[in-house]
């Protein structure tokens, strides 16, 4: 039996693992991560109070995208193009088939 996930949605878990894996692989220190994440939370929290759930992981994602853009590991243009490629792949794949990127 599988215990209930500690994340509300699978992408949050994937995002968490991706970030920890990047840090553990030495691409950024956890202190640098925390500083950048803290800055995003502060900026987002000026408009409204964050509830620590979905908006927390939205801030997490924005932070990681920004860090990886600045470091050159995943520039925004490349990230946007890859996202668009995944969208096309989903829309072109019959339901029930595995979705894959061409090439």
């Amino acid at each position: 039996m599988t215990p209930p996930s500690r994340f509300d949605e699978p992408w949050q878990a994937q995002l968490f693992a991706l970030t920890v894996a990047m840090s553990e692989a030495g691409h950024f220190t956890w202190a640098r991560w925390a500083e950048a994440f803290g800055a995003t939370l502060k900026a987002m929290g000026t408009d409204r109070l964050l509830d620590g759930g979905a908006d927390y992981y939205a801030a997490w994602l924005t932070t990681l995208e920004g860090l990886l853009d600045r470091s050159g590991h995943a520039p925004v243009d490349e990230a946007a193009a890859t996202k668009a490629a995944w969208e096309r792949a989903y829309l072109a794949t019959p339901h029930g088939q595995p979705v894959q990127l061409p090439g």
Binding site: P10, L15, L18, L61, T82
Partner: peptide, 8 residues
């Protein structure tokens, strides 16, 4: 967000 994570 799921697609953005997938892209990264």
């Amino acid at each position: 967000p799921a697609l953005r994570v997938k892209a990264l």
